[in-house]
Every structure is written in structure tokens, then in C-alpha cells.
Simulated scan of single mutants.
Amino acid sequence: MRAFVAAVIGLAAAFALVLTLSAVGSPPGETSPEPLLTTVPGSQR
């Protein structure tokens, strides 16, 4: 029973965090026009 209560409290806290972050919204600004490098340059085979 204690595990169930702890799980409910954890889920409620996570849900409240998601709602808070979605209410605040994303910070203002622009994305970079440069693509992100996902590999080390020059390591192509």
C-alpha cells in the first residue's frame, strides 16, 4: 500500500511539473541556421 501511495505522489509531482513547464512556455529566441554535427568531421569511411 505504501508503494502505491508513493507511486501516486510521484506521478502527481511529475504531472504538475509538466503542466508548469508547458504553462511557462519556451524561452524567446531563434534557432541556429547551422546544422548540428552528429559525427566527428573527417571520420567518414
Rank of each mutant, 00 (worst) to 15 (best):
T20M: 11
F15N: 04
G42P: 05
R45I: 02
P41W: 10
L36S: 13
S43R: 14
S32L: 15
V8L: 10
P28I: 05
V24I: 15
A7G: 02
Q44L: 09
A7W: 00
T20W: 15
L11W: 06
V8K: 03
V24H: 08
P28D: 10
L19I: 03
F4A: 05
G42C: 07
G25C: 11
T20Y: 15
E34C: 12
I9Y: 01
L37I: 07
A14M: 05
T31A: 15
Q44A: 14
T20S: 11
P28E: 06
A7I: 00
A12W: 00
T31V: 13
V5H: 04
P28K: 11
G29P: 01
T20C: 10
E34S: 13
A13C: 05
P33I: 11
L21C: 07
T39D: 05
L36A: 15
P28L: 08
E34H: 15
T31C: 14
L17V: 03
S26C: 04
L17I: 03
A3K: 03
L21P: 01
T38Q: 05
V18K: 07
A16Y: 06
Q44M: 09
A3N: 07
L37V: 11
L17E: 00
L37W: 14
R2E: 04
V40A: 13
V5A: 06
L36I: 15
A7H: 00
L17Q: 01
A3V: 02
F15A: 14
G42K: 06
V40L: 15
G10K: 00
V24Q: 10
F15I: 07
A12V: 04
A16R: 02
G29D: 01
G42N: 06
R2I: 06
P35A: 12
V5E: 03
P28N: 07
Q44R: 13
R2H: 09
T38W: 11
F15K: 08
T31K: 15
R45L: 08
E34K: 15
A6L: 09
M1G: 12
V24D: 02
A7L: 06
G42Y: 06
P35L: 09
V5P: 00
L21M: 08
A16H: 04
A6N: 08
G42R: 08
L21Q: 09
Q44E: 13
A12Y: 00
A23Q: 09
L21D: 02
A12E: 00
T39S: 12
S22E: 09
